[in-house]
């Protein structure tokens, strides 16, 4: 398996320009809101803001930066919906923190590692979201393992492709 344990000194830490830092999450939010108009199942299976959160968190390898990125993207996603603001925010904050913490300890540069990490964090995100939505907001949520697994895999495969594209914007520190 290509996941390898590395020390903090061995892994590369990247940074991104301001246009990329702002533009990519904004583009992800835009596509997430726009594509379902043409392909309704897109919103069911794909969460582009989640993929962007995971990518930035893993690339920067800074937990604080990761959790703040997740919080901002999640809150923006909440604002586009009509549910209370904070549900996606909390879920993506946890994912951002977890992905960046994992990025510090693991080499997640290869496709296989990225696939597994994205799949894992998809379920973390779903678990936190459903816990908050049911526990705090009293929303009626149903969980289907089959569709959940399908969505997780879809996000993971799309994530691998997306990370490959976004790698072009990385800048070494």
């Amino acid at each position: 398996m290509p996941i390898t344990y590395t020390s903090g000194e061995q892994v590369e830490v990247y940074r991104f320009g301001i246009p990329v830092t702002i533009g990519v999450p904004l583009l992800a939010l835009f596509l997430q809101a726009f594509v379902p108009l043409r392909y309704p199942r897109f919103a069911v299976y794909i969460d582009l803001p989640l993929l962007v959160t995971i990518f930035f968190a893993m690339a920067r390898r800074n937990p604080i930066s990761g959790l703040l990125t997740g919080a901002v993207i999640g809150l923006a996603q909440d604002m586009l919906g009509h549910n209370p603001i904070g549900i996606y925010g909390i879920a993506k904050t946890v994912v951002g923190y977890g992905a960046s913490s994992l990025g510090v300890k693991l080499d997640v540069e290869n496709a296989g590692a990225r696939l597994l990490v994205t799949l894992g964090f998809y379920f973390v995100h779903a678990a936190v979201y459903f816990t908050v939505a049911r526990g705090m907001v009293n929303m009626t949520q149903t969980w289907s393992w089959s569709s959940g697994l399908l969505a997780g895999l879809a996000n993971a495969f799309l994530g691998v492709i997306l990370y490959f594209v976004l790698d072009k914007f990385k800048q070494r520190t």
């Binding site: 937990p63 604080i64 959790l67 919080a71 603001i85 909390i90 946890v94 908050v132 705090m136």
Partner: peptide, 22 residues
């Protein structure tokens, strides 16, 4: 525990905001 404290702080703020809305 700086990272963890900040995480808890950010989560707490969001939970607080959520509670105020609900």
């Amino acid at each position: 525990y700086r990272n963890l404290i900040i995480l808890v702080g950010v989560l707490f703020l969001q939970v607080l905001g959520l509670a105020m809305q609900v």
